Amino acid sequence: MHRPIALGWLRSFEAVARHLNFSAAAEELHLTQPAISRQIKGLEEDVGAALFARGTRHVALTAAGQQLLRAVAPSLQRLDATVRQIRMAQGRNQIQLTTFASFGSLWLMPRLPDFERLHPELDIRITATDALVPEGDPELDVALRHCLPERAPPGALRLFGEVLAPVIGRGLAQAVAAGQAPPLRVPADLSAHTLIEMDDSHAHSVDLSWPSWLAEKGLEHLAPRRWLSMNFTHQQVQLALAGQGVALARLPMIHEVLARGELVEPFGPAGRHWARTAYWLVPLAGMGARPRPEVRWFCDWVVAQAERTRCAIRDEPEADTLAHCD
């Protein structure tokens, strides 16, 4: 029987095959993980073969999955390129940028309506990847990245530094204050709480982890009530908001949530820890050449937004910018 395959299923398949991770694919496509799983199941039923071998902690392509990926990946690339050409031909300029999933979710996307209000004539395309300088997409204009200074690509502009802070949701903070949950007056009190940890394989992520923070406080051997590990920073934040434990959050990405009182720093500013990593804006298209006007507008807007973040977190490495902060 000849019947068409849903394009959305193929996009989900290609994303899972590229990441070998259902959660990462869901983040990239702005879908839930159950939705991605349902689409893959539907595609497997339609194709009549298993496309992924699912293990307890890993996902791998089957032979059928590899065969389908060889057909799907270049087809989607050609389709996307054609759509971009049509849009350009219709007179709508486009900014194409890449960032990592949590930064996009927590920092960039909440601010994008401001840029869209200033430039409603522009289309924006965002892709999620951790590669410092992505390969294979020459049309990308800008990358927003997080890395150690010595790893920053040539031409990268430092936006702001990294500072970590233990945070809890408003509900848990109220329970602690009312004596309905164990106290959180000093770091040693963490032993009675769940610590929400980031499960990240990047080398610099060691400095962003609970063990590093605890060692700085002289608590190398502290054993919490339990550990709860997640892949992405924004998942940690969501768990903290839900009252599931104490997250070691990245302040540049959550300072507005703190200002609204939805998250609380139980140890206050004394619990903050500056890391060596920083956030960067990296120009990609035509590096060394003058960028298109719309790309300059976007970069200038990002820099202005970054200055507000620097002021909010009191970015000490950029002390000369603090004179502009209220």
Rank of each mutant, 00 (worst) to 15 (best):
Q96N: 07
G286S: 10
S105I: 14
L108H: 01
D46S: 11
Q235A: 11
E116W: 10
S209E: 10
L281G: 10
L61A: 13
V303D: 13
A26T: 06
G8P: 00
H204S: 15
R84P: 06
E139R: 12
E197C: 07
G171S: 11
E121K: 08
P266I: 03
E256M: 04
E294P: 13
G261F: 04
V176T: 02
E197Y: 13
E44P: 07
R84C: 06
H255M: 02
S201K: 14
I254E: 10
T56G: 07
S12W: 03
A64R: 09
W9S: 03
L118A: 07
R290M: 10
Q96D: 10
P34S: 05
T233H: 15
A71E: 13
N21S: 13
A49G: 08
A319D: 12
P182K: 01
A131F: 14
R151N: 15
P149Q: 00
A275Q: 12
D315F: 06
L29K: 01
A312W: 05
H204C: 13
L108K: 06
N231Q: 11
A247T: 00
A71G: 15
P149M: 00
H255N: 04
E44Q: 15
E116Y: 06
A60E: 14
G268F: 03
L68K: 04
R117I: 06
T309G: 05
V295T: 11
A71H: 11
A50C: 11
N21T: 07
V295C: 09
A242W: 03
R226Y: 10
E262W: 05
H234E: 04
G104Q: 07
D189T: 00
A25M: 07
L281D: 07
L140C: 05
V176A: 03
R310P: 02
A128N: 04
D315P: 03
A81Y: 01
A89F: 13
L69I: 05
G271H: 00
V237A: 01
L263S: 04
M109T: 14
L43F: 10
L241E: 09
V133Y: 02
H234V: 00
D137A: 04
F267T: 08
D114G: 03
A249E: 12
R117A: 12
H2F: 14
G286H: 08
I5K: 02
V59K: 00
V302Q: 06
R70Q: 12
L241S: 00
E262C: 02
A323I: 15
T309I: 01
A223E: 14
